[in-house]
Design a binder for these strands. Structure first.
Lengths: 223, 223
DNA sequence: CGTCATCTTGATTACGCTCAAGCTCCGTGG
DNA sequence: CCACGGAGCTTGAGCGTAATCAAGATGACG
């Protein structure tokens, strides 16, 4: 009844499992999983590798990337502490995952919980919810890439980051990563950031630290 | 064990359930579900409606679309006979679904199978697999929109359609729908189709009927 | 304080969009 | 069977947004 349980919870915080379930699953991951530290830009898994683990960001941040043969790069998603990643449709990874900055990652083999019925059920529920989240994000990403202007993309991105990292406005990634996520070039991202600042929509007090000056304006831009 | 069963099947036909399981789930849908005929462009469900059913294309074809406030339109995905759709992350639909042409759709309430443990398990497995497929498609769509040129997008699209509809090369959608899926304008789609034809990559013998003349060239373009 | 990576800014180019005809395909009715 | 009409598609001309190419500026780190 995993599917039904997830879809039937029509709360404001979408897809959030009950904290008891989540805690149980996280406990199981922490107890049976490996906790590994990665340094900035270190690969966690590669494109074409076999999918057999689930990963959880303990600290730091992660990006998943896909390379075209001629070097064009697309970032699939960014992950922050508490986020689950490494869930992919097929038997092989279609994206690689790298640490954005020094990070701690906990990973479990999906088969590790054999015999622990209770924990296994919680973990499965967690995986199901994380997969739905992933789909939701991917769909939003499609809309952004397909029908938004450069300025709207950057605004949407900043708003999304603030929402996901608890409003602190810290960017763990550089401009190139932003560009590869937004389907733009690094120069265009830079120009749009400058433009948003001169329009008093956001304010940067460091290269990777900003705050939103005009919430309504940025919300309107993000559409 | 839904998650594990699906991800452990590393066959060439990815995420394909065993035919017995699929048949059982389809049987259950046909028996307990409603079979409804829709005419071209008729809405199957709307954006913002509550998610509580699963849909299966029996005949025809379906598109899911999302509208921005100013009228810009993005098509999320196209669905063909046998495809499951209507699975969405949250409690509400974020896309609307419409029939591309006259179509027959079978729908079941997700809660309809209460009490039929066997069938319910098969249905859940089917939903899980369809969700993974959906995620895979969305990720491919992100790559296409983020990092491919107009020509590559159109080539990728034609190749995908041929693969999904059994190689017959029939397009159930018009140019506008192709454009809104590919993040392009109708004029650009038209120009790229003309260009692909003059380069002898594909050949159209009717507006919506084509065949691939140069499989290697189109595969290379689709990257 | 020097060096190198990262980021910003500027000038120019080009890909895809917009605007505007014209054409084709088809359904309808004479 | 052909004339008419309209929607959908193609083609053309010009434009605009974002890419490319190329310096500089800024910031991080030894």
């Amino acid at each position: 009844m995993i599917a039904f349980a997830a879809s039937a919870s029509g709360s404001a915080a979408r897809h959030r499992p009950t904290s008891a379930q989540a805690d149980a699953a996280v406990d199981a991951i922490e107890r049976l999983g490996l906790r590994i530290a990665y340094t900035k830009d270190e690969e966690i898994y590669g494109q074409e590798e076999t999918v057999d683990r689930v990963y959880r960001v303990a600290s730091g941040a992660v990006r998943t990337t896909r390379l075209l043969s001629d070097g064009r790069r697309q970032i699939g998603e960014f992950y922050f502490p508490g986020d689950i990643f490494g869930l992919e449709p097929g038997p092989d990874h279609r994206f690689s995952a790298e640490a954005l900055c020094d990070s701690e990652i906990v990973m479990v083999k999906r088969t590790a919980l054999r015999g622990e019925r209770e924990a296994a059920a919680d973990l499965e529920r967690m995986i199901w919810i994380a997969t739905l989240r992933e789909l939701e994000r991917a769909q939003e990403h499609v809309l952004l890439l397909g029908r938004k202007t450069a300025c709207e993309r950057v605004a949407s991105f900043l708003l999304d980051i603030v929402g996901r990292t608890g409003g602190r406005g810290d960017l763990p990634m550089g401009r190139q990563d932003m560009a590869d996520y937004l389907g733009l070039t690094i120069e265009t991202v830079s120009r749009m950031l400058t433009q948003l600042q001169s329009n008093s929509v956001v304010e940067f007090d460091a290269l990777r630290r900003f705050k939103i000056s005009n919430p309504q304006a940025i919300a309107r831009l993000a559409a």
